[in-house]
Design a protein around this nucleic acid. Structure first.
Lengths: 109, 109
DNA sequence: ATATTTCCTTCTAAATTGTAGAACATATTT
DNA sequence: AAATATGTTCTACAATTTAGAAGGAAATAT
């Protein structure tokens, strides 16, 4: 049984890591967040959240090798763990179940 | 456009108010939370969240009249506002959109 | 009648999450 | 070498989440 809590922002970041796949590193994630949300995030917010998610075992990370793009620093690439997926699935199932009980919400978009 | 943030726990509580209708008061909400989640909540957690949600305009409340049940104190009954519904709908649409982009999550339960 | 029990809210305090941005590192272009 | 671009790490503070003690009032028991 899954016990660990998953914050609101944490969930979105975790999901974005899943969505971005190979390209899941902090700056990119922040970009993607702004694209999808129309809301701005600070890079610090994303980094600290990624670190926390890794601490909880939902994510793993490793430094990528330097690319030949303009900027230099190596990226830290994040990957979602099996446990992380399980937590996401759980959060989803729970939400869906609740929504079904509240008819005021339009069933599908 | 909806700007106000909605925390994870806040969203669940808001939803439960919607689901419970006339019966939406703190203690009952806490019960329902435990039923649906298999997780325990403190009553304080629920109360402070309800207060915050009301402050944000997602909920309204009024004291109910005393019933003839054993316990005495009057209940504070909460109702979800139109704005609150809109926020829930938004949160839902956003989540659904993200999930669709991450195929690892099973589409439907 | 008064004490006890039950149902409920208000208050106080602390841990965890969420948020911002400065400081730092390193590669490419000029 | 200096400037510029891409990234991470570190430091701090605000907001949310969480727990539980302290009150309050009606119904039942004594």
């Amino acid at each position: 049984m899954i016990e660990t809590r998953l914050g609101d922002f944490e969930e979105v970041i975790l999901l974005l890591v899943g969505i971005l796949g190979e390209e899941a590193y902090a700056l990119k994630i922040a970009d993607e967040f702004e694209n999808q949300t129309q809301r701005s995030v600070s890079i610090g917010a994303v980094h600290s959240t990624l670190t926390r998610l890794e601490g909880k075992g939902f994510l793993e990370s490793e430094m990528g090798s330097a690319t030949s793009e303009r900027g230099g620093r190596r990226k830290r690439i994040f990957t979602i763990t099996a446990y992380g997926k399980k937590v996401l699935q759980n959060a989803k199932d729970f939400k869906v179940a609740l929504w079904q009980q509240f008819p005021a919400l339009s069933t599908e978009k």
